[in-house]
């Protein structure tokens, strides 16, 4: 028997599949920063370190018919949907087997019903169009768009929410509120709250404050099925924490802010929950990613013909 307080402090480890996926994303992102550090990657990248549990917890709540729109911080979203680290790394490194031939890179990935773009706020109106299509052609399916707290600065977000609510579209907006946008704390870029914004448009809002995957799923399952059955847009706001820099080497946060983010890291908490099982899973995923990095780095460059 465990003490109730101990349960609170140490959430149970998720199932193997979830834990493996969490760790896969974590090591994938760490590997990218490492490749940048070594000068082996060009361009830019935005890691989801600390936020991995968001797409992992949503995974069983989204189906193959659902259309997912991701953003600049999208590696976790992609990996949770397809578990294809090799294809994504090849995309980021411009190697053979890249999901989009190396044209899109880290921020612009399109595969089946999954699409990301690097322009903030752009995806939400598009998601309403997709939601309208799904409503008419495959009832029960939804369009899901991931956005950050800072992206609420863009007017397109509001136009989309209004239409989605007005026309009763199956739209799920997942807000990863990590308290910061690039270098700007949320308090310096957002008046009011996400909840009040959703309410103003008659959209449901649910705030997730835990990193416990089981709890999150229990909370969200009925709400997400309401989106499907009643065509009512839903805004799910994850209160989350960005562990790493915005992109790479551009973290100007005070030490305290970073420490505060680290204190919420699921990785540490799960590592304490069942040290042995966690360590084994951790090592397996670290080695898996290292092997993928070696394999992809050795591949020939991707090929693509410019259109035009």
């Amino acid at each position: 028997m465990t003490e109730p307080s101990a349960v609170l402090a140490r959430p149970p480890l998720p199932d193997d599949g979830d834990l493996d996926l969490l760790l896969l994303i974590r090591h994938f992102e760490l590997a990218l920063l490492d490749l940048f550090g070594q000068g082996l990657l060009a361009g830019t990248t935005h890691t989801c370190l600390g936020q991995e549990y968001v797409p992992v917890s949503l995974r069983p709540l989204l189906g193959a018919d659902d259309f997912v729109f991701s953003n600049h911080r999208g590696h976790g979203h992609y990996l949770a949907r397809f578990e294809d680290p090799a294809g994504l790394l090849a995309e980021i490194m411009g190697r053979e087997g890249a999901v989009c031939r190396g044209v899109g890179g880290s921020q612009h990935v399109y595969r089946d019903r999954y699409m990301s773009t690097g322009v903030q706020g752009e995806s939400l109106p598009v998601a309403t169009g997709v939601a309208l299509h799904l409503k008419n052609t495959s009832p029960g399916a939804l369009a899901c768009a991931f956005i950050g707290d800072g992206t609420w600065g863009e007017g397109a977000v509001y136009e989309a929410l209004n239409i989605a609510s007005l026309w009763r579209l199956p739209l799920l907006v997942v807000v990863e509120n990590n308290g910061i946008a690039q270098s700007t704390p949320t308090a310096r870029q957002m008046a009011g709250t996400v909840a009040a914004r959703a309410e103003a448009f008659g959209a449901r809002h649910h705030r997730v404050d835990t990193t416990d995957i089981g709890v999150i799923r229990d909370e969200l399952a009925p709400l997400v099925s309401e989106v499907r059955l009643e065509n009512r847009p839903l805004v799910v706001e994850f209160a989350t924490h960005r562990l790493g820099p915005h992109s790479k080497g551009d973290d100007t946060r005070p030490r305290d802010a970073v420490r505060e983010a680290e204190a919420h890291d699921w990785y540490r908490r799960y590592a304490q929950a069942d040290a042995g099982r966690f360590a084994r899973a951790d090592e397996i995923q670290r080695d898996r990613v290292a092997a993928i990095v070696r394999e992809i780095s050795a591949r020939p460059l991707s090929r693509w013909e410019p259109c035009g």
Binding site: M93, V103, G105, S302, P306, C307
Partner: peptide
Amino acid sequence: SVGSVIPAAAHLESAV
């Protein structure tokens, strides 16, 4: 530049 999107990968980008 070529009338095209500008790819991310360095080898494709420089071709455009």
